[in-house]
């Protein structure tokens, strides 16, 4: 378990200074847009991949702290990974926000969201970018 101070620091750091937030206008990237009707989070994720692994992931759009930080952290986590590895990480993340057993080691900084499951109304914020990443992986795999 991370302590609260560290979690807060990770979240605010990725919210205020996201590493992967930028608009991509490069044809070698594919993109997926994910927005929700009930909240304002509105995210586009861009991915570049080779035959079987992710070379780069970026995102842009409008999001709250949870949406922005979770998307940014997940971009970090899956960059350079094979599709299989990336999907496994995403599955661990879903397990965590569903309050199921999960592998802490696989999630690194994403462990900052380990109590998100307690707030049903924010789980959507913490998964909107992740769903877009997952969708892109599925697109590339086909």
């Amino acid at each position: 378990m991370m302590d609260k101070e560290l979690k807060r620091e990770i979240m605010l750091d990725h919210y205020n200074h996201p590493n992967n937030k930028q608009t991509v206008e490069d044809d070698s990237y594919r993109s997926v847009h994910n927005a929700s009707e009930s909240c304002i989070d509105d995210i586009t994720v861009y991915m570049k991949a080779s035959e079987d692994h992710i070379e780069d992931v970026k995102f842009d759009g409008v999001g709250c702290t949870i949406c922005t930080a979770s998307t940014d952290i997940m971009c970090d986590l899956v960059t350079g990974k094979s599709f299989e590895e990336a999907k496994a990480i995403i599955q661990e993340y879903y397990n965590m926000v569903d309050d199921k057993p999960f592998d802490e080691d696989a999630l690194e900084e994403a462990n900052a969201f380990d109590t998100l499951y307690q707030q049903a109304n924010r789980i959507k914020c913490g998964t909107i970018g992740i769903h877009a990443i997952e969708e892109l992986i599925n697109e590339f795999e086909q």
């Binding site: 609260k4 979690k7 807060r8 979240m11 605010l12 702290t65 949870i66 900052a112 969201f113 109590t115 998100l116 307690q118 707030q119 924010r122």
Partner: peptide, 10 residues
């Protein structure tokens, strides 16, 4: 404050 907002989900 933003810290309080973030803390509310930690």
């Amino acid at each position: 404050t933003i810290e309080k907002c973030v803390d509310s989900v930690l």
